[in-house]
Design a protein around this nucleic acid. Structure first.
Length: 326
RNA sequence: CCGCCCUUAGCUCAGACUGGUAGAGCAGUCGACUGUAGAUCGACUUGCCCCCCGUUCAAAUCGGGGAGGGCGGACCA
């Protein structure tokens, strides 16, 4: 797989394609980042972007994981001590999941976001940005909460992070797109370079198949699920025997295969009793999706298989969490 | 600082005028039917009624105080 394909596969959006193609010409040593508000347990939403980070590392890029403690503080996620504690757990789980330690730099926001130069730049950016513009960038992340000044500062800091972390690429879920667009618009106004952005899709809600727009709300599968819980959750997922359900719904089981399983496994084996046709082997997502669509692969078998592969992906992180908590 | 409106189940809200310790829809849980889930049908669960004080035999409801949220307070209309 060439570098461009590694950078862009499974991405919902690439901004801009031209810039990313340039980056793919010589990716070695280039720096990409994702920012996360620290949380103690990783869920599928985190892992989706982590898969992209692994792709980037495979292409030779350096990955910066921003443990966004100041952002979490702005979002009232706890005291700095609590936030830092969950951030350490988060870091351990990312490494257990498969990020390459040698190519990953974990950075706390508070390490540089409280410096004088950064702060002054932030104030500069505040002067350059209307409240309307900042709020629009945050709408997706903020949800229904009442707007606070902190919500306006939040996306401005993300904009500066891209400069201060010396990045070549910003990565995030599709919910980050407005923030990244704000950054692309504002960085030149401060005489900084524009960086491209790659956005991962938002997977539909597991039980309803609805979504594409809501952020991490509906995602229920996490690093702390036991094998049994995982099986139960996957089994209760919405899964019509089609690729494209009616009424604008998605098939979340297929989405999980596409975005979580196939990027991490060379082949997927569906174990089936002989009476249902015996085992099936897939080397790519397309073949599996086509078989589900045609009826060759029954949803129940797809679910069983999905659960066991997800379990394998989650197992090391689950183990790490257990260690940390004991 | 001043004024008006809102706060009841996870969510959206009814109930308040005419006090008698709460309801609907959606969601959720469980069964039936499907080799999954959904849909459908059947059953079921859910509450510091924002807080405090007072009136009363009795307060979600009346009175006072407070908190949180929304909106308004130039001109124009």
């Amino acid at each position: 797989m060439d570098a461009y394909e590694l950078l862009t596969r499974n991405a919902e959006e690439v901004v801009t394609d031209e810039e990313v193609r340039d980056l793919a010409e010589d990716p070695a040593g280039k720096r990409a980042y994702v920012g996360y508000e620290p949380s103690g347990v990783l869920h599928l939403g985190h892992l989706l972007t982590a898969n992209k980070l692994i792709d980037l590392q495979d292409a030779g890029m350096e990955v910066v994981v921003l443990l966004a403690d100041v952002h979490a503080y702005l979002n009232e996620k706890g005291t700095f001590e609590e936030i830092r504690d969950t951030a350490e757990q988060m870091k351990a789980q990312f490494l257990a999941y498969g990020l390459d330690e040698a190519q990953t730099e974990f950075v706390y926001g508070s390490e540089f976001q409280l410096e004088e130069e950064y702060t002054l730049d932030l104030h500069h950016l505040e002067r350059e940005t209307t409240m309307n513009r900042a709020q629009r960038a945050m709408a997706e992340i903020q949800g229904d909460e009442t707007a606070k000044v902190s919500h306006l500062v939040y996306p401005l800091m993300q904009t500066l992070d891209i400069e201060y972390l010396d990045l070549d690429l910003a990565v995030g879920g599709l919910d980050q797109r407005k923030v990244h667009m704000l950054a692309r618009e504002k960085l030149p106004e401060l005489d900084y370079d524009v960086r491209p952005a790659i956005h991962t899709p938002i997977v539909a809600d597991l039980t309803s198949g609805e979504g594409k727009m809501s952020s991490s709300e509906g995602i229920s599968i996490s690093m702390e699920d036991s094998t049994e819980e995982l099986e139960e959750k996957v089994n209760s997922a919405f899964c019509p025997p089609t690729r494209e359900p009616e009424d604008d719904l998605e098939n979340p089981v297929l989405e999980l295969f596409e975005y979580h399983v196939f990027p991490r496994f060379e082949e997927v084996v569906v174990e089936r009793p002989d009476k249902y046709g015996g085992d099936l082997t897939y080397e790519g997502y397309e073949d599996l999706a086509e078989d589900l669509d045609s009826g060759e692969l029954h949803p129940a078998d797809a679910k069983g298989t999905l659960a066991s592969y997800l379990d394998e992906l989650i197992a090391p992180g689950r183990e790490k969490l257990r260690e940390l908590r004991s």
